[in-house]
Design a protein around this nucleic acid. Structure first.
Length: 627
DNA sequence: AAAAAAT
């Protein structure tokens, strides 16, 4: 139906500088519980509920926000809307789907630095043509129209200036779609490969909204950030922080970062100067909140990067604590945005607890964006891995792939394994360095810097480096040990082939990786990669052993390009209270805003037809090639 | 059994 593919060229704004204060291990002052003051929670009743009331009023998607003053708040913690699950009853109710055509893009390939540290990378190898055929999937109610240019978006004078400074000429696909959604104040679940401009996609609207609020944070003992961005690793938090600072340059919007492993006093000192946007890892943030140094009571916007990691078993309790058990405004009276390259069903289900009537957006699924990455899988028994690796590395030396502009990233399973392999490579004359979570933060950052600069063009890493990290010039990702989870594989190989450049990913498959075989085969097929015969055999055997796994329904989670709500019919049938769809029908009526009304009220009527306004049907699902 | 994230 509306499933169209398109031509585009782009390159993301590659972040280069990571100028951070040097970290020194210091003793942190212990704060006994009775001194950990409770912050007062009031004084926000006069605050607008949406970051973007102004925008919301101009758009078709304001309900739930602009109506806040006269309407009850949306369901708290995502449970509220489920209570209304019984309402409605149309076939395919509350489900919608659309795909849109893209224009061609022409983006300056380099991010101009506003700071020191100039790295003379050139875009000569950027493969623009490889970004043809980027499919975009959007589902949700009343979807804002995508923007084709930054002029059209018009984020205001100072932001426009920064966009020019960054040499962003045209928005990337994720930016085209996500920015209007975010500006409309809507909640969002977005799938896109990191390195596709995601950070800018949520930073620009956040900064814009804060400027519109015209209520910048003042210095004080307790920081009241207006926006919170969460990251699963410290390095990624730093990276986002650096980018956000560039975007907020000369806007008077203050950005601060909070992460562990570095002395908290510096971070606290920075907070006291006033914070509008706080970028944080969960642990340190909780620490600061318990010390009553940060209150989330003023949060208007919450963004989670690498959201699927943030909601996995290890992280979920911390996220729930931050989002649901502290003083953060409830779901529905804040704006919430999730970004990730992969979004498994279970995680989508969890995430929907934190979202209110959200839009699902997926840009660039595997068949398109990872054509840039040539994937190879080789059968290598554990015993032979080191020798095999050495041959591989020797083989790429003559090609000049060992130079500054061609880095090799090797993933291993364990921290000990990372150290061991680093040591062994060094012994054999390969300039390698390891990064993992057992190193102190300073070593981690030093390793990353050494790798980025090409001083040690081989980085041996655990999954600490698998997500979000943007290192230009990674030409080769080697999965020395394959991960257990196919999504981790996706994130790992995503460290290469970035910014429109091509990359190579080699995996060493051993007997232990049997459980991964099936998913790996599916992934390779979807990415138009050659599937070794032996791997196919493994996949068949594995699927017999593992028990015919339909664990990942429709294989849909691979590149996240699949709104799990489409499968909700199962739950609707079985249990009306578990329906995620109740909110859509329910919201419109309980808020007294029919679609027609809201369109009329906002003067946006072009969405009500065809490609934008319609609900998605089985027809469109089939047309889009799933099932 | 493993990695990440607070001290």
């Amino acid at each position: 139906m509306y499933y169209t593919t398109t031509t585009m060229t782009w390159s993301d704004g590659v972040t280069e500088s990571t100028q951070r204060p040097q970290t020194r291990p210091t003793q942190l002052p212990y704060v006994p519980p009775h001194l950990r003051n409770k912050y007062n929670n009031g004084a926000m009743s006069s605050m607008p509920t949406s970051l973007n009331d102004d925008y919301a009023n101009k758009n078709a998607n304001s309900y739930g926000f602009t109506t806040e003053s006269t309407q009850p708040p949306l369901g708290r913690g995502g449970r509220g809307h489920r209570g209304r699950g019984g309402g409605g009853g149309r076939g395919g109710r509350g489900r919608f789907h659309q795909t849109q055509e893209q224009d061609s893009y022409n983006i300056a390939s380099k991010f101009e630095k506003l700071e020191v540290n100039v790295d003379d990378e050139s875009p000569e190898s950027t493969n623009f043509a490889a970004y043809d055929d980027i499919p975009v999937e959007v589902s949700g109610s009343e979807i804002p129209s995508p923007a084709s240019s930054f002029e059209e978006i018009d984020l205001g004078e100072s932001l426009n200036r920064n966009i020019k400074r960054c040499k962003y000429v045209k928005p990337t696909p994720i930016q085209r779609h996500a920015i209007p959604i975010a500006l409309a104040g809507r909640d969002l679940m977005a799938c896109a490969q990191t390195g596709s401009g995601k950070t800018a996609a949520f930073c620009f609207p956040i900064i814009h909204a804060i400027l519109e609020l015209n209520r910048l944070s003042k210095p004080g003992r307790v920081a009241f950030p207006l926006a919170l961005i969460l990251s699963p690793t410290r390095e990624l938090a730093c990276q986002i922080y650096e980018e956000a600072k560039k975007f907020a340059y000369q806007t008077r919007v203050r950005v601060a970062v909070a992460y562990g492993g570095a002395p908290i006093v510096h971070q606290l000192h920075n907070l006291e100067k006033g914070v509008d946007i706080l970028v944080a890892t969960p642990g340190r943030l909780v620490d600061m909140m318990e010390r009553a140094k940060v209150s989330l009571s003023m949060i208007k916007c919450l963004a989670l990067d690498e959201a699927d990691r943030m909601l996995d078993m290890g992280f979920e309790p911390q996220i729930r604590k931050i989002v649901q058990q502290m003083d953060m405004p409830p779901c529905g009276s804040r704006q919430t945005m999730f970004f990730s390259a992969t979004f498994p069903d279970e995680i989508q289900r969890l995430a929907s607890d934190f979202l209110s009537n959200y839009i699902f957006l997926s840009v660039g699924r595997v068949g398109s964006s990872t054509d840039l990455i040539a994937q190879r899988v080789e059968f290598v028994p554990n015993m032979d891995k080191r020798n095999h690796l050495m041959n591989l590395l020797r083989g790429q030396e003559p090609n000049g792939t060992h130079g500054k502009h061609a880095l090799t990233l090797i993933f291993v399973e364990t921290k000990r394994g990372a150290d061991a392999l680093e040591h062994w490579l060094s012994l054999n004359g390969f300039p390698a360095i390891a990064i993992h979570g057992d190193k102190v933060q300073m070593e981690r950052e030093r390793a990353l810097k050494s790798f980025k600069s090409g001083y040690t063009p081989i980085l041996v890493a655990t999954d600490v480096a698998s997500r979000g990290l943007d290192v230009p010039h990674v030409a080769h990702v080697i999965n020395f040990d394959l991960p257990k989870d196919i999504d981790d594989y996706v994130h790992r190989i995503g460290r290469t082939g970035r910014a429109g450049k091509s990359g190579l990913a080699t995996a060493f498959f051993s007997d232990q990786n049997m459980p991964l075989a099936k998913a790996l085969v599916e992934l390779l097929q979807e990415a138009n990669q050659e599937v070794p015969l032996w791997l196919n055999d493994y996949a068949k055997r594995a699927s017999n052993i593992v028990g015919g796994g339909r664990a990942r329904r429709f294989g849909g989670s691979k590149f996240g390009g699949y709104d799990f709500r489409r499968d909700a019919q199962y739950e609707i049938e079985n249990d009306p209270y578990s329906s995620t769809y109740g909110s859509f029908d329910g919201t419109a009526s309980s808020y007294g805003l029919s679609n027609a009304n809201s369109y009329a009220a906002t003067g946006v009527d072009s969405y009500s037809t065809g490609s934008y306004g319609h609900e998605f049907s089985h027809e469109t699902v089939e047309a889009s090639g799933w099932d």
